[in-house]
Design a protein around this nucleic acid. Sequence first.
DNA 1: TCTGGGGTCCTAGGACCC
DNA 2: TCTGGGGTCCTAGGACCC
Length: 410
Amino acid sequence: MAARRWIAHLDMDAFYASVELLRYPELVGQPVVIGGGRRHQPERLADGTRRFATLRHYTGRGVVTTATYAARDHGVHSGMGLMKAAARCPDAVLLPVDFDEYRRYSRLFKAAVAEIAPVIEDRGIDEIYIDLGDVPGVHDAVGHDACGGVRAIAQEIRNNVKCATGLSCSIGVTPNKLLAKIASELDKPDGLTILTEADIAQRLWPLPVRRINGIGPKAGAKLQALGIATIGELAACAPDWLAAHFGRAYGRWLHDAAHGRDERPVVTHSEPVSMSRETTFERDLHAVRDRAELTRIFTRLAEQLAADLQRKGYAGRTIGIKLRFDDFRTVTRDLTLAAPTADFAAIRQAAGLCLKRVDLSRRLRLLGVRAGSLVRPASGSPAAPAMPSGAHPDAAASAPELPLFEPAGP
DNA sequence: TCTGGGGTCCTAGGACCC
DNA sequence: TCTGGGGTCCTAGGACCC
């Protein structure tokens, strides 16, 4: 029989907020919210202390990216509108997002993990899966603790992360990714949870179904309506019944997930499939009245996307746009080109053609430009004439004149 | 007090080809 | 004149995740 897999999920605790607290230690213990776009940078006063913006007077469309645990105690959480967060916790400190800094700490903590366990799957800036299978000593027992070997290694990883970054993390170690993801949340923050198949009934089944990664708001609500609240109740459902309500593939997956079954490997390398740039306006814009501004924004998004692609060495064969209307309805249009491109003018032209296919009678709140079906162009021969366009603020002038932002609908 | 920005994957219909 | 499958590509939308 094959040795049990040991997969860890490591999740940094309130990552962005914790990085900010390293910078501003006087805020430790206070409710702090990271988010919003416009400048609310702390001010340094003459006496050397800093003055921070609070949520109280915030106006705008930003959302909470991360909140400290003190802010969470007031009912503030990620994804919540900042206006709503302000109503719940007006005295919370508001800090702007500093992705460069978070990415720096992200590299630091991942390097610290890799020193101990190098088989890592990146799941974004603040979390990873780790395959502990080949780490020396992982299958050892320590005294009466059959899991003593894994426990010691997980503890060593936590220590190394703390040492390298000053930040705490939570780790779940289990036989697969699905369980590890759930386990890492069981004792957050600064927790370590080890589960085996033997723990599934006791530790997994009492939890709400939404704790399973892959059951989101829609599936969660549907299960609730069917009278299924916990993972245990889901596990008790007949697979055929689940398939009848959720489709064959998803029904099957729900059943397996509820029983803690998951064979997915830890994937250490993957290529991007798409890249995009999008922006939500400070106020809704209309295709006719705000045509000049919309065109400027549209052009800038295409420029940024072209620059991203060129910097990272990719080209996209499918160019698409995304629009969100004032009623929050979202539409997308895309266009597949004869050859992949990273060229600004080509991207903007294709995006302009996509735009012509949308009824623009409603006001817009968001605009985005996307490149999909990415390839790495053969070295030395770019897929499109390589104009150094990312740096050209007025490169639009060289693009063919397009009748952008005219209402095209009925 | 309406809801960011960056992604992945899946489904489903139509076109088109064999 | 009617009837096929199967496979792939393209497009649009949606669920979900960090």
